[in-house]
Simulated assay, not measured.
Amino acid sequence: MTHDPNGAPPGGVLERLTAALGAEAGRRGPPPVERWNPDYCGEIPLRIAADGTWHYNGSPITRPALVKLFSTILRRDPDGRTVLVTPVERVGIEVEDAAFLAVEMAVEGEGEDRVIAFRTNLDDVVPLDDAHPLRVERDRDGGFKPYIAVRHGLWARITRALAYDLVALCEEREEAGERWFGLAAGGRFHRLARSTELS
Rank of each mutant, 00 (worst) to 15 (best):
R75W: 05
R76S: 14
R76K: 14
D77F: 01
D77V: 05
D79Y: 10
D79M: 11
G80R: 04
G80H: 03
G80Q: 08
R81G: 13
V83A: 05
V83L: 11
L84E: 08
V85E: 02
V88R: 14
V88Q: 15
E89H: 02
E89S: 11
V91D: 06
V91F: 05
V91A: 05
V91L: 12
V91I: 11
I93G: 04
V95Q: 08
E96M: 12
E96R: 12
D97K: 03
D97N: 12
A98K: 03
F100Q: 07
A102N: 03
V103L: 05
M105L: 08
V107Q: 02
V107N: 01
V107P: 06
E108C: 12
G109D: 04
G109A: 08
E112A: 15
E112V: 15
E112C: 10
V115D: 07
V115T: 13
I116H: 00
I116M: 07
I116S: 02
I116A: 01
F118P: 11
F118V: 08
F118R: 05
R119H: 04
T120F: 06
L122H: 05
D123R: 07
D123N: 13
V125M: 11
V126R: 07
V126Y: 06
L128H: 00
D129A: 13
D130G: 09
A131T: 14
A131G: 15
A131I: 06
H132C: 02
P133F: 01
P133T: 01
V136S: 01
V136Q: 00
E137M: 10
R140M: 13
R140I: 13
R140Q: 13
G142H: 09
G143M: 10
G143E: 12
G143Y: 01
F144L: 15
Y147V: 02
Y147C: 06
I148E: 00
I148C: 04
V150M: 01
R151N: 01
R151E: 04
R151Q: 06
G153A: 06
W155G: 00
A156C: 06
A156D: 04
T159D: 11
R160S: 13
L162H: 03
Y164T: 13
D165W: 07
L166G: 02
A168R: 11
A168F: 10
C170V: 11
E171P: 00
E171D: 13
E171W: 09
R173T: 09
E178S: 14
F181Q: 06
F181G: 04
F181A: 04
L183A: 11
A185F: 07
G187A: 07
G187M: 06
H190C: 02
R191I: 03
L192Q: 06
A193D: 00
